[in-house]
Design a protein around this nucleic acid. Sequence first.
DNA 1: ATTCGTTCGGTTTTT
DNA 2: CCGAACGAAT
Length: 801
Amino acid sequence: MKLQDNDNYLSQLNDQQRDAVLYCDGPQLVIAGAGSGKTRVLTYKIVHLLHLGYDPWRIMALTFTNKAAREMRERIEALTSPEVSSRLWMGTFHSIFSQLLHRNAERIGFAHDFTIYDTSDSRSLIKLIVRDMQLDDKLYKPANVQARISKVKNMLISPDDYARNPDLIDADRDGGMPHVVDIYRAYWKRCHIAGAMDFDDLLFYMNILLRDHPDVLERYQQMFAYILVDEYQDTNFAQHLIVHQLSRLHNRLCVVGDDAQSIYSFRGANINNILQLNKIYPDLKIFKLEQNYRSTQVITQAANSLIEKNEGQIPKKLFTANQHGDDIPVIRCFSDYEEAYVVANQITRIKARQGDSYEDFAVLYRTNAQSRVLEEAFSNGGRRDTHGNVRDAIPYRIYGGLSFYQRKEVKDAICYFRLIVNPNDDEALRRVINYPARGIGDVTVGKVNHCAVEQGVSMWEVMNHPDSFQLNVNRGTQAKLNGFVSMIKDLAAMNEGGANAREMAESVYRKTLILSVLMHDKSPENISRQENLQELLNAVGEFVDNKHETGDDHNTITDFLAETSLLTDQDMDDPDGEKVTLMTVHAAKGLEFKNVFIVGVEEDLFPSAMSADTLQGIEEERRLLYVAITRAKQNCIITYATSRYRNGETKSCVMSRFLRDIDMQYLSIDATREATPTRSWQDTANALMEQWQPRPSSRRYTWAGNSQTPLSTSSTPQHSTPSQRAVRPATASPAVSGDASRFTIHTADELAVGKQIVHSRFGQGTVTQVDTSGADAKIEVTFNDGTARKLLLKFAKFEIL
DNA sequence: ATTCGTTCGGTTTTT
DNA sequence: CCGAACGAAT
């Protein structure tokens, strides 16, 4: 195992961190306060394990977000080598378990090409079931039922268990929804028939796999010699149990977390998983990291004083040796509208004062809906002159909201991909069977569905064997169905024939006409859809290129789906930085910014009205604010408005109770609003004018990360709202920082044995062979980490020294 | 079957 | 205010 700095990595840790890294003899809990170097400990610990001789593929490191996993992998790569870091089992719970389940699918009665239902797929299936069962969907609201099913799944309760559980049954009956159990059972069955798993199933079936197949359990227990888990306070029971099962043979477990940052109980996270870990592991060693390296004293102390108001925390006192810092301004605004302009103005001002870049700013809010006004203010640069003309817009980037893969046209294309991989995927089928319109309407689809339910098969099965199932449709309709079936079959045959993902995607576009139907209409939203489909194609292409370049032949559309279906919006790389980040507090967990605005700190919003009636609810909201404050390195600015436009009407609001929980000495409540009096007056006047006139269209044509409003098109009606902007999908390669344009494609005659190159991923190396014999010229390179690789010249991007 | 207009209901956070 | 969902019209 080759490490760059040998033992040097240990010198970059403080005593507590080093202790936590060095202890590798048994189960370990690291309570890591905000900003205390949690990720650093995990990263260095893995490096340390590698140094001790652990094989990378025997280390499992679980995170909650793809982003966290990716960042950790990059850091480890820098300290070791791509060769080593790429072999670690590192990823989100869902993605790691998805991989393991795909390998063992047949053991739990699934085809190995099972597909994954996202939240909207499973909701639409539940809705369908509710209707099929002739239940009232006003009563059995799909979202509610879904949440309930999700909750019990995370407690590992199957439909049979549910039926046997008097508490659940009674609760449903008392709640007037006695049929939840039946919906759950039907849902369960139909997912199974469709060969599909939802997010919760990935955890559930992983448990089933380990529970019912001792040989599999033993194999993985043997294989995973060390298991590390990040953000353990946010694990639910299903995750907790898997971790325990896998780790209990070697007992080499390191979990890192902070009970004060547990903010996902609505998703089944159970704080007791971390608080009572010592009950399961009597020899658990506890390490505390209490020194904050991120924030000023003011921010750290203010956060401490807030979280103290919660009961039942693990006692710890976060301290920092950082500078004292400025007080936290608490700015009262008249309206949400004014609040947005105040934030925009403050950003401009602080940026000028501190010489910051826009990347140094984040605006955090409780709900996604709050982003709209902010976007509008940012597009206007936070200022208007007397004529209302737009001045210097503030570039921003929104995380959350609609992700790229959720956009209608993109999801349609993806559903074709899914159908090719797994034609039994009923949700994908229902979605695209008549898109583009091919004369297969609701009535026909309803018949196919009905027949499928009766026979206990997938809709595809019914359509594929029309003779075995009497479908009461006329000849014309039957012909249309047959046409669809054979189209999918042709594509599937191509996939099985080994076509790569790009070839498949191109064929899908061509055969299904999804792109060409958008050509007829030149409306802006249609153009935007075309762009998005093109963007998806690019993403697929990059995926294939990357695979090619690294000599990995898993480049089919099946592989593409497996790797992307668990990606979210947060995982998108933004090509051009220099933007203010707008996101929910939840999405900000684990991140840090020099300057953080927390907006809408009002009763009924933060804390949310939904959580206000229970103590646990309030405490979770308080932790959420704690998370928000501790994201800030230097400046934290809190705003609230006394009136807010919500659900179509203006409501008056009051300051959040949480502001009273923060020690006054760290706040400057009377912070005056920025801007000159005239500006301020002007902003207010503008705000008032807005109430009179129809609002200036907040719908702006923006896409692919371009948040500036193109003035030339502002007269045409636009239908894509700002928060729906497409985002460029992440490239599969962990991009090397710095100037990517240095890395380009080269031809064989530029190269010779002995030449030095720098590869965009693998770093520097020496060419050991140039092979132009085949159709595609290849070179062989020995990189400085000792690994030798073959690179295809038509794909590999590097610089010749 | 598709499209367009109207009404109605709802509102947290996300892998 | 926004989207879903339903009903009526080519």
